[in-house]
Design a protein around this nucleic acid. Structure first.
Lengths: 226, 226
DNA sequence: AACAAAGTGTGACGAAGGTCACGGCCTTGC
DNA sequence: GCAAGGCCGTGACCTTCGTCACACTTTGTT
């Protein structure tokens, strides 16, 4: 894919004309990373915006004792790393590749230059930040109010909405180990195992290796809200 | 205080000229509320921005079982309610007055009109949203990684930074019951009581009714990070 | 002054969930 | 083929924390 086409896909620059995209494309730097590469840590100075061409990146927090939680995934055409760019503060979370991934980076100075040249970009930035805030508010809410079993159920529904493919139920199209799911819902791997077992026994989901299929979305939702 | 002066204080409109502020002031509506009045609930449609003149407002989430957590306080010159305004979605959290408070509201249409007329306002909006995101990320982090005792310690340091007055230690200048503190740290009132007792016994804080004084900020920080 | 209401202190108990220790089952690489 | 490393399933145990109950103290009201 050309840089120009990539830019047209990312919602951040949706408002720009072809001409504007072409000049923007000149400032992009292409990078390829293997799986499991840490792009940055929380607390590091952040001067680059990331635009994804392919692969998948996990946004995470890491505790002193080594526990990891994942706040989000990003895939093709998503962008991330914009927060530190906007306010000049350190990175608020870490980022690590989950698969081999290809990204284009944009340096802070270049980004701000284009921002001033084409102020209407700010509209999509506002939209993006708003969405992030809502997502994080929801995350906080489930963490505060739901027990592990319900957090697992809620997260499965969430993932089904983002990665689900309909068929005989909704297949979550992600290789998802129980350990990874545990970092989403902030729980131990063993708890998640027991939660999945319970949901399977009730006929709400079907588990086949790393593939999870949601058989009864309605039932899952009922399960959560008691 | 005149509307015009209020507007000059709020960081959201920091970039505007006096002339621009004057026209903006014409669209404001003044409201006074008693303590304990709910301004809006999560999920409600949100068409108004709130600018505070005086008083204090608590931003909260409410679970189905009636448990409340508080995400934030707002005081004089703060504004809130901007998220639903920007993206047109329902309110992401509720707001309730803690004291008699006076606010000016700005309706969505008027806000957007001024936004288009003076696009440089978006800079301070971006700054505000960025700050909200960071705050919420920190909130999530403490919730995920710290136990109740440490969350209490961390929250006291946080509040001391926002409302502390130096003296013989740092006095947190808020009437703060243990029950309210419990909604900040997402725990039961009794747990918070025990946590405060422990911190008092260690000489880190002093509790006098609803007044809490931090005697040893360094010690508190050490306590948190083990 | 007296009483109610709100807030505080504390212990007993049980539920939720983490930790640990396994054993089994697949991959993947030699 | 086989060994090693991931991942899964599961039970025993222990910590953390919420719930409940109740007595005590402060504050505000009539």
């Amino acid at each position: 894919m050309t840089r120009h086409n990539l830019l047209r896909q990312t919602s951040l620059f949706a408002g720009l004309t072809d001409e504007e995209l072409r000049t923007l494309a000149l400032d992009l730097h292409r990078h390829t990373f293997a799986a499991g590469v840490i792009l940055f840590h929380r607390g590091a100075p952040g001067n680059t915006l990331y635009l994804m061409e392919s692969g998948r990146v996990r946004i995470f927090l890491l505790s002193d004792e080594g526990q990891e939680i994942t706040l989000n995934f990003h895939g093709p055409d998503d962008c991330f790393g914009e927060l530190a760019l906007l306010d000049g503060m350190p990175r608020s979370a870490g980022a690590i590749t989950l698969e081999p991934t290809v990204v284009y980076t944009l340096h802070r100075d270049d980004f701000l230059r284009h921002l001033h040249a084409h102020p209407h970009i700010t509209e999509s930035i506002l939209a993006m930040l708003s969405q992030r805030l809502r997502q994080l508010t929801d995350y906080t809410e489930t963490l505060a109010f739901l027990d592990v079993y319900d957090r697992v159920a809620a997260k499965l529904l969430d993932l089904a909405g983002r990665y689900g493919v309909a068929g005989d139920g909704i297949l979550i199209d992600l290789p998802l180990t129980q350990g990874e799911l545990a970092t989403w819902v902030v729980a131990s791997r063993e708890r998640v195992n027991k939660a999945l077992g319970m949901l399977r026994d009730r006929g709400l989901i079907d588990v086949d290796g790393k593939q999870i299929t949601i058989l009864d979305p309605q039932g899952l939702r009922r399960q959560i809200y008691h």
